[in-house]
Nucleic acid binder design. Structure first.
Lengths: 205, 205
DNA sequence: CACCATATTTGGACAATGTCCTAAACTTAC
DNA sequence: GTAAGTTTAGGACATTGTCCAAATATGGTG
């Protein structure tokens, strides 16, 4: 695989940031690891935030591909979260520093507002459409469920890094996707419950 | 109110950390605000982490008082979370930097493991006892519910700071306590549902 | 009151960090 | 082969948390 300098910097930065946390990897360490000087990094990415923004953009693009598809069933609705969680693991440094980044990095927080709107709308319309197709019965609980889903999707990996760091990434994903599935159970029709059970089985339950 | 120097430092630090974030308030700014020198702060708190640990200890003590009481009913079980959330707001700087602090500050993360165990056990035993007293029917869902509760209690304020910063603290608390209450609804008996409804009414719903 | 031990405060030093800038080296196109 | 643009090197700068030795203040004892 051919990589230009900027791509090499991005790749190594992601690797080191994931390993030790964005705030705890200095540009000088990153430069040393790459065998270049600091000023060389700042040529491609004038500030550290610019480098982080690039990573965020990459993750955003990955997730957008998943969100854009309309889920055909409750099963595929849940499956999508599994894919999103896999992306989250790949860019976990961003999610673990989420709150800080949002409060400090203007560009990122503006960009995320858009992503957030899309995600929120996507969950709302998906839940509605799943109700119309006889998978769910939601009534007044829709907004409540969207809140729980938003919270979980945003912070599952932070929680996992604190409580289940000893487990593999795959097991962590499995745990929190299971959580989302079980969350829907009380609001599912017979047909919906069957799909949730099917999904849980596909996870190895 | 008489405060010695250490208490004055702690009080002003909490104020500034809550306002702008622990990582974005330098000891020099804190010192200037207090009309003293940096070295004077490090006399009482050798490192910034020591200062943060002190705040964490204070919050921990506040919460412990709440957790120790056995809840008499589902209503008082929910009421306790409201009190905990009020403490969280008072010490929000800690919760907003939660992931970082845990990964970087050894003393704090060790101390939190204990707190965490207590909280987990407290939720588990409380849910069991509520089931025995005919408020809930849990079966295999107990662990699942504990996970959702843990995640929500830990990160509600981070989510709120991102999505509902424009609302008052009271409204934010109300929203996420409501969420916890609604979460229990499908697992509540008639008697339990009545108490949840009563609790929601007490919140102004 | 005078003295001394302890507690507190000062002022500055230190290494590390993100950012910035200028000059040198290298590429590319004509 | 030279000129223009791109990339790299090397170092400067202000800021940060931490540390230290000297100066000052405090409080108890003879």
């Amino acid at each position: 695989m051919v990589m230009n300098k900027a791509e090499k910097i991005v790749a190594k930065a992601l690797e080191m940031f994931n390993e030790r946390g964005i705030e705890y990897v200095s540009l000088r360490e990153l430069a040393t690891e790459l065998g270049i000087r600091v000023g060389n990094i700042t040529y491609y990415f004038p500030t550290k935030d610019d480098l982080v923004n690039r990573l965020a953009q990459d993750l955003s693009r990955l997730n957008e591909q998943i969100i854009l598809q309309e889920p055909a069933s409750l099963f595929s609705f849940l499956e999508r979260f599994q894919k999103i969680f896999e992306n989250h693991v790949q860019y976990r440094c961003l999610l673990l520093s989420f709150v800080h980044l949002m409060h400090q990095n203007k560009v990122l927080s503006e960009a995320y507002k858009e992503t957030e709107k899309k995600r929120y709308l996507s969950i709302v319309t998906n839940l509605s459409s799943l109700q119309e197709r006889g998978y769910l019965i939601l009534e007044a609980d829709r907004n409540f469920l969207v809140s729980v889903f938003s919270l979980t999707v945003r912070f599952w990996i932070s929680e996992a890094s604190l409580s289940f760091a000893h487990r593999s990434a795959a097991e962590q994903i499995r745990q929190y996707v299971t959580l989302l599935a079980k969350l829907l159970m009380p609001y599912a029709t017979e047909k919906g419950q069957a799909e949730i059970r099917q999904f849980l089985v596909s996870l190895g339950h």
